[in-house]
């Protein structure tokens, strides 16, 4: 894993030198980095290929996201490369601070659960921006490989595995005349709370199909506001899990910087009900 991280970092640096003379996609049309590192909204991967590289170019960005939750805190950091507006490679590392719940679970105050997520996304058909004379969305297929760093601990709460794959199909369309972006993503997953609590469980131990949706309004070419919804499995006996919802504003003052601010409702997480959160994210592009 360390080696893969190194390769990704090294390739980012070399791309930076060679290929980033200009990246010409329009502002915000590469999405932002969602929690698991893929280009999308905050919660959900979209069919858009991240970065501002067009078909002739390579784009890349790095992100830092903090989710300040009622009783927890989640930090997600990572980077992605968009290759010729066709393939997206991404990496994210999540660190989930259990705070008081860590004490209650006997792990100690502020114990951090950690996972890495390697993503690949391939655009299959359509162009969300250009094909304004068609109802066909841009459609992409993606895989997120998730690896937990504390297999023993997540098994102790009922998870069955410390690594797993998510598979998703995303359809994204920008209705330019209406200034609206719409996205629907279908995901097959067995991850518990994105994978922070491991994969599979003592209640359900197989992939299930989840639906995720986003709608955004493009206030200007630099600012989008929207809402997202993401259903999640409920695999563990000890800790029930709810669908997530957020309302966000994304701002791209220029090509190489964007910021996202959101309120997210996360429902039950482990021992604590009704968790709401403030989501802040910054993305730097090349």
């Amino acid at each position: 894993m360390k080696f893969m991280k190194f390769v990704l970092a090294a390739s980012l640096v070399s791309f930076n030198v060679q290929a980033f003379e200009s990246s010409d996609k329009l502002l915000l049309t590469g999405g932002v980095n969602q929690l698991e590192g893929s280009a999308g909204g905050g919660l959900t991967p979209w069919a858009l290929i991240g970065g501002y590289g067009t078909q002739e170019q390579i784009g890349a960005n790095a992100f830092y996201t903090n989710v300040a939750i009622s009783d927890y805190n989640l930090v997600s950091t990572g980077a992605l490369v968009g290759i010729h507006d066709r393939v997206e490679l991404s990496y994210a590392h999540q660190s989930f601070d259990t705070k008081d719940v860590g004490t209650a679970l006997g792990l100690g105050y502020g114990f951090k659960l950690k996972q890495s997520i390697f993503g690949i996304k391939v655009k299959l058909i359509g162009d969300a921006v250009l094909d304004q004379d068609s109802w066909l969305p841009q459609i992409a297929f993606g895989i997120q490989y998730k690896k937990h760093e504390q297999g023993k601990i997540v098994r102790s709460v009922g998870a069955k595995d410390d690594k797993s794959f998510d598979f998703y199909l995303a359809g994204t369309k920008i209705f330019l005349a209406q200034s609206i972006l719409a996205n629907v993503t279908l995901r097959a997953t067995e991850a518990n709370q994105l994978g922070i609590l491991g994969y599979g469980g003592d209640r359900i131990n197989h992939h299930q199909l989840m639906i995720e949706g986003s709608v955004a309004y493009l206030l200007t070419r630099k600012i989008a506001v929207g809402v997202e919804y993401r259903t999640k499995p409920n695999n563990l006996n000890v800790a029930s899990e709810d669908a997530w919802f957020d309302a966000f504003v994304a701002w791209a003052p220029m090509k190489n910087v964007s910021a996202t601010l959101a309120y997210a409702y996360l429902g039950n997480i482990v021992l604590n009900q009704d968790q709401s959160s403030l989501y802040t994210s910054i993305q730097l592009g090349f």
């Binding site: 010409d24 329009l26 921006v129 250009l130 094909d131 304004q132 004379d133 068609s134 209705f175 330019l176 005349a177 209406q178 200034s179 493009l218 206030l219 200007t220 070419r221």
Partner: peptide, 26 residues
């Protein structure tokens, strides 16, 4: 992008800008 900048300069509302771009994009 340059057309958007020209329209921004003349304070064309974003909704109208996007409607024109939707006609031109195809």
């Amino acid at each position: 992008e340059l057309l958007q900048q020209a329209m921004d300069k003349h304070k064309i509302p974003s909704t109208a800008q996007n409607k024109l771009l939707a006609k031109l994009a195809p």
